Simulated assay, not measured.
Amino acid sequence: MLEVSLRHRLGAFALEAAFAAPPGVTVLFGPSGSGKSSILAAVAGLLRPAAGRVALDGAPLTDTARGVFLPPERRRCATVFQEGRLFPHLSVASNLRYGLRRAPRGAAGPGFAEVVALLGLEALLERRPARLSGGEKQRVALGRALLARPRLLLLDEPLAALDAPRRQEVLPFLEALRDRAGLPMLYVTHALDEADRLADTLVLLEAGQVRAAGPLAALTARTDLPLLAARRDAGVVLPCHVAAQDPAAGLTLLDFPGGRLRVSWREAPLGQPLRLRVRARDVAVALPGVALSGVLSTGNALPATLRAVERRGDAECFLRLAVGESTLLARVTREAVARLGLRPGQAVVALVSAVSAGQG
């Protein structure tokens, strides 16, 4: 468990943030200038806050009230930045072994061969950084950090300097790192798709303050958080697994707690877990008994219960829909609510587009 409580001022910017990060991946999400990187620097020991406490598994790394401030090299926090910061004169193998040499004597952690396999670095070991793509450099930087056998991995927008194809190249390795390494991570980003795919816990930051913190699925289902709900891609993230593939139709069938969704093709084996962002603007509702043959040929019709109608501005509403154990959001007009006579507790059918639900 990572515990963070900080107060600090940098010029006109005031940081006052507190949160707890349980095991897994905690993503600090928010716009540029919200304080994400300052928090990461304080955890790493690169920033001494004016007041506050940082503790890892109960052991204080910083405690201004008690005069505790461990230097960075004693914190066992490995940091990966936007640029890989590899040694240009060393091969990939030598860069990786540099991390291994920095590991404390007797510290548990993955070995060289395990890290190379996990990050797909086998074909790169003899190359020098100048002959690597941006995505390859970041994978090597991740490997070097892992081999230092840290207690906590800090990632400061590690994909921000990469173009879209390179980002998509690295994300699966970060997912594998989350699922297989068992190392707690604090991850900074302003890209919602990275948060969707990686976060166990989400911390929303704005203007130096924590607006909300909690499990990813719970926060994405809230409509009172403008950082998420005001976005055009606002919607819930569902944990799913691949149930079937229909290559002829270009569709993948995903099971989630509450039903099954047909979505646009995902290259994934049967049984593989996936996270799916179901955008509120791609969910409509119908009353039971309405002819749905056209919808069924192009999308999904799921029995649901309308739990709440939440106004958003003068023209729109969020509908909160219970689909089995899961929650979906639908963004509809107030006119549609009145026309259909929608009210909480009513049985409805949730209509989800098959091709526009995006993978998290």
Score class of each variant (00 low, 15 high):
149 R>Q: 02
274 L>Q: 11
67 G>M: 08
282 D>M: 12
332 V>K: 10
211 R>V: 07
341 G>A: 04
76 R>A: 11
217 A>N: 08
266 R>N: 06
117 A>G: 12
189 T>S: 04
351 L>A: 09
187 Y>V: 03
66 R>V: 00
157 E>M: 09
95 N>Q: 00
150 P>H: 02
230 A>P: 06
252 T>Y: 12
282 D>Y: 06
326 S>F: 08
37 S>G: 06
242 V>W: 05
274 L>K: 04
151 R>K: 07
118 L>S: 02
155 L>R: 06
350 A>K: 05
244 A>W: 03
199 A>L: 13
216 L>Y: 13
16 E>T: 13
330 A>R: 00
23 P>F: 10
6 L>F: 08
256 F>K: 02
276 L>F: 00
247 P>V: 07
52 G>N: 05
130 A>Y: 08
116 V>D: 00
31 P>G: 01
221 A>G: 07
136 E>D: 12
47 L>H: 08
339 R>V: 14
61 L>G: 03
307 R>A: 15
359 Q>H: 08
278 V>W: 08
263 V>K: 00
360 G>M: 04
154 L>D: 01
8 H>K: 07
212 A>E: 06
211 R>G: 06
17 A>H: 14
272 Q>A: 14
41 A>N: 08
264 S>N: 13
347 A>H: 11
291 A>L: 12
300 N>D: 07
249 A>R: 13
328 L>G: 03
316 E>A: 13
351 L>S: 07
15 L>S: 07
117 A>V: 06
234 A>S: 06
318 F>C: 13
326 S>T: 06
69 F>N: 02
181 A>P: 03
275 R>M: 14
199 A>Y: 04
67 G>I: 05
237 V>S: 01
100 L>V: 13
159 L>D: 11
5 S>K: 00
291 A>I: 14
202 L>W: 00
356 S>G: 12
84 G>Y: 04
4 V>E: 05
339 R>F: 11
154 L>A: 01
238 L>P: 12
93 A>P: 01
100 L>W: 00
59 A>K: 08
346 Q>W: 15
342 L>W: 14
337 V>N: 02
112 F>L: 15
235 G>K: 02
159 L>M: 13
211 R>F: 09
157 E>K: 03
157 E>I: 12
339 R>C: 03
72 P>S: 04
140 V>P: 00
315 A>N: 06
144 R>Y: 05
190 H>Q: 15
63 D>C: 01
344 P>Y: 10
232 R>F: 06
275 R>S: 15
45 G>D: 04
319 L>K: 04
70 L>C: 08
38 S>C: 10
52 G>S: 09
89 H>M: 00
66 R>Y: 02
